[in-house]
Amino acid sequence: MASGDGGLLSASHIVEYPYRRSTGPVMGRFFAALRDRRFEGVKTARGRVLVPPTEYDPQTGEAADEMVPVGPGGVVTTWAWVSHPRAKHPLNHPFAWALIQLDGADTAMLHAVDTGVESAMQTGMRVTPRWRAQTVGSINDVACFEPEGTS
């Protein structure tokens, strides 16, 4: 027990427990594809391809379960430059957070883009994923995106 304001007692309270998540058939396939260094989206009944996929069309509520390959390249639709990366950021040098619309997708998803310098970032630029050497089935299996033709 520690002493708080005015000598009244306070105490820290740390709650820890390992929770578990079931991804379900749609997100589960999305993550499994990442492990294989591929992207998959879901096609809704109205023909829109959502990436990352959702189990249900957010507008109509209809179930969406037709998985379709997308990417691996895509287009930056908007971005924000990070001049001073923090410890938990995906890159330890300046980079951009960007919304990336993968080829074949109708929606954009958030990821990091490594151009080295801000002047190389442009809305509309084409990017491709840089995969990690080890993949586990996580969005972080993509280390970041980089301008097409970089490597």
């Binding site: 998540r21 079931s22 991804t23 379900g24 058939p25 749609v26 997100m27 189990e55 249900y56 109509t60 509520g61 209809e62 179930a63």
Partner: peptide, 24 residues
Amino acid sequence: TDVSAPGLLREAATRALEDAQLTW
């Protein structure tokens, strides 16, 4: 583990709609 949490409640909701012969 075959379903996500939303998928679990969707299963019940879909059956209730089917029982009522209604749609979303």
